[in-house]
Design a protein around this nucleic acid. Sequence first.
DNA 1: AAACAACGCAACCGCAAGTAC
DNA 2: GGTACTTGCGGTTGCGTTGTT
Length: 333
Amino acid sequence: MQMGRHSCCYRQKLRKGLWSPEEDEKLLNFITKNGHGCWSSVPKLAGLLRCGKSCRLRWMNYLRPDLKRGAFSHKEENLIIELHAVLGNRWSQIAAQLPGRTDNEIKNLWNSRLKKKLKQNGIDPNTHQPLLEVEYDKAPSPNSKSTNHKLFLHNNRYDINTHNNSIISCKPYDIVEESFYSLYEPNLNLITTSNHNTSLCFMPNNTSSHMISDLNYTNNNASFISFGDIDGIQNWELINSIGSINSCSIQLQTNTDFLNTTWGLAESATAKADDKLCEYFNTTLFSVGNSNTVQDQIQTYLYSDEVIKPEPGFIIDEASTFWNNNYIMQLRF
DNA sequence: AAACAACGCAACCGCAAGTAC
DNA sequence: GGTACTTGCGGTTGCGTTGTT
């Protein structure tokens, strides 16, 4: 017998295709009274000529009473895009963050609308990176322009190299005494630091011992950074609020522990409230930094997030002092 | 008005992982 | 440990609806 096929499917001719109202009623009545228990036995007990798999799908995607009906809100769409940037095509995990929505309808939404929307905004829906950057990588323009910028996160300095206003690479530079802070510079599409005497520069990613696996630039009103540790390899990822033309993401990986003492549980952080996002992520919100000079322009949040599962290769080290959770930091400007 | 294309949604299919025996 | 079976997930397909020519 082939794996994944129900034995009942071979024993009798079963109905396929759209469900009739009568079938819906039978299934709904049965599960309401008895629960689904073993799905393979549901159709027989409910008097349906369907396989258990079909019954389960109909219940999960349509009959379940806790489903939210109607069109997706703009907020939901943005959240899906943001979560997709972190989770990829893990529709069930994305759906877990949107109460009342099913993985199937989120998948349909993504394939029919959101992918198109991102492409129209110049963002690769697979990588969530600007499409222009790919073009640059393939054929650098003779008129291209590179810059170096600085970023301070806690006491660590990071060098960021940009090209044509896109972040090319990032590496930790050295430890400085400046208190941590990061600053977004909208005009430059860059993240820099509160300490303008020192710098976080973006460096070429092919020579540093702190290799950056993948990143691009951001120019938006909101960004996320998530962190992880795999066997000593620290990863962090900054993903902005996708969906507008100026959105971008940054994804960094290093083979050192450069963030090991930088990011943690934000023990000294000042808690700030962002009820809506807390609700989305069912998590606690922490502030981790503010600019002295542009305090009104930026707020930095750190999320302790136990809901979102990390990417493969982005597994959190449970034994780590600092990485026992997946963290998301949101920068608002 | 008809033909065609694009879209949106529901459901199916195949696979992998988990479980029971 | 091997086999049969169940469950859940993601990719894909089919079809009705809507828009365009």
